[in-house]
């Protein structure tokens, strides 16, 4: 998997979870930038990412995620993808 594939995969998950195909991710985006990204949407998002990429997040890891870029880097780290 390339970093571009990873980015596009994460973007697809966001579009699906938030039911908004127009979402275009940027690395510096946060929960403030996407309507409906609250605690419970976050669970859906995390679970959808876990299923999509076959990974598991630990709670401590979730607490360190401050923006989309952090999320992509963490998934990349788990998959061994260089970003």
């Amino acid at each position: 998997m390339t970093s571009q594939n990873l980015f596009e995969g994460v973007q697809t998950v966001f579009q699906t979870v938030f039911e908004d195909p127009s979402i275009q991710l940027a690395r510096n985006m946060t929960a403030e930038d996407i309507e409906g990204w609250d605690s419970f949407a976050h669970i859906n998002l995390v679970m959808a990412l876990e299923v999509k990429f076959g990974i598991k997040f630990r709670l401590a890891e979730l607490q360190e995620l401050n923006c989309v870029g952090d999320m992509i880097d963490m998934i990349a780290g788990k998959l061994g993808v260089t970003t």
């Binding site: 946060t30 609250d38 976050h42 607490q63």
Partner: peptide, 11 residues
């Protein structure tokens, strides 16, 4: 209040 609410509570 910013970010994901219940994670902020836990933090």
């Amino acid at each position: 209040s910013k970010g994901v609410g219940y994670l902020s509570v836990l933090r």
